[in-house]
Amino acid sequence: MIGIAVEVAITRPAAQVWNVVADYARDPEWRRGVTAMEPSGPLAVGTTTDERMRFAGKGYRNGGVVETVGPGPTFTWRTTSGVTAAGRRTVEALGPDRCRVRLETTVEPSGFERLLAPVLGRLLQRNLAGDAARLRELVERGP
């Protein structure tokens, strides 16, 4: 099991940032390698997703489901097909115009990928840190 997490401070109100973090349809705007993300509806327990992405030169298609929402601006998810993964997204207000986002992911490599777990962990950590930076840039830049 590979567990990774990143935090990023963003100079925008938590509610504004939550609107992006909780909108799966916007994932391709800030998550590297995600080429399409189709949620079955607004964020709620049971919302399903169909994600298409590229990682390390390989294409993936992952089904997912939202498992919990709240309390507060946080939700958890897990995959239902494709790569075995789970995670959490949280937005914490630090003041009226500043917040912190925490992105957490666990991935269970399978087959040959288990041998590469240390390398995959570093790649995933770097990608997640880049995602957090792109999220900050997207939200701070505004519409």
Rank of each mutant, 00 (worst) to 15 (best):
residue 55 F to E: 03
residue 104 E to S: 11
residue 123 L to Q: 15
residue 20 V to L: 07
residue 95 G to N: 10
residue 120 L to P: 08
residue 66 V to S: 03
residue 134 R to D: 09
residue 82 G to R: 04
residue 79 T to P: 02
residue 128 L to N: 01
residue 104 E to M: 12
residue 90 T to L: 12
residue 84 T to L: 07
residue 137 E to L: 02
residue 57 G to T: 10
residue 14 A to D: 08
residue 48 T to F: 10
residue 87 G to S: 11
residue 86 A to E: 14
residue 99 C to S: 13
residue 97 D to T: 08
residue 34 V to I: 08
residue 44 A to W: 05
residue 40 S to T: 13
residue 131 D to H: 01
residue 75 F to W: 06
residue 126 R to M: 03
residue 28 P to V: 14
residue 77 W to C: 10
residue 32 R to I: 01
residue 59 G to C: 13
residue 73 P to E: 11
residue 46 G to H: 02
residue 105 T to M: 15
residue 141 R to L: 01
residue 105 T to P: 05
residue 117 A to I: 02
residue 117 A to S: 14
residue 134 R to S: 04
residue 141 R to D: 00
residue 132 A to G: 08
residue 37 M to I: 10
residue 118 P to M: 04
residue 77 W to S: 06
residue 61 R to K: 14
residue 4 I to L: 07
residue 95 G to H: 07
residue 18 W to Y: 02
residue 78 R to Y: 06
residue 25 A to L: 08
residue 104 E to D: 12
residue 45 V to A: 08
residue 110 S to W: 06
residue 85 A to R: 13
residue 85 A to S: 14
residue 125 Q to R: 15
residue 142 G to W: 00
residue 7 E to L: 08
residue 114 R to W: 10
residue 25 A to Y: 05
residue 141 R to K: 07
residue 58 K to I: 15
residue 8 V to E: 00
residue 67 E to V: 15
